[in-house]
């Protein structure tokens, strides 16, 4: 009896072990971000800033949805390094995509694992939109 129970529980345990909690966000990262910010989120030299362990992102959680949609032209400092190249926005990503993407990045590499709801993202986007 105990054996059967264990057998039944096994798939559940295996599902729990699936580390990829945000498959949609992971797919969006791969398709739209990894080309420049690199698969591991480390960026490139002092040309492209990292998104993994970025103090700039941790300090600007509320700006991130707008940066993803509309891009960034300002010179910024990330982990003590100055970055001045423009990032283009990604208008192809809708509100849901951006929410998934942000949660994936936060979960994967964020300092505080901040969680965004779709409502948060819509509110933040409305503050920077046209």
């Amino acid at each position: 009896m105990l054996k059967r129970l264990l057998l039944l529980l096994l798939p559940l345990v295996l599902l729990q072990c699936d580390a990829n909690t945000y498959p949609d966000g992971a797919a969006a990262y791969k398709a739209y971000c990894a080309g420049c910010h690199v698969e591991g989120g480390t960026g490139l030299g002092t040309l492209i800033p990292p998104v993994a362990g970025s103090d700039y992102m941790a300090a600007n959680l509320k700006k991130l949805p707008c940066i993803i949609r509309y891009g960034l032209k300002d010179t910024i400092v990330v982990n003590g390094v100055v970055y001045s190249e423009e990032m283009v926005g990604i208008p192809q990503l809708n509100d849901v995509d951006i929410t998934n993407l942000l949660n994936y990045i936060q979960h994967e590499w964020g300092a505080q694992d901040h969680h965004y709801t779709l409502g948060d993202v819509r509110q933040l986007l409305s503050e920077c939109g046209e």
Binding site: G35, C36, L44, L47, I48, E85, E86, V88
Partner: peptide
């Protein structure tokens, strides 16, 4: 070109 906002950063990542 340096101020290329689209494909150049991706190509530079691959060149690196």
């Amino acid at each position: 070109f340096i101020h290329c906002p689209t494909i150049c950063p991706k190509v530079k990542v691959q060149c690196k």
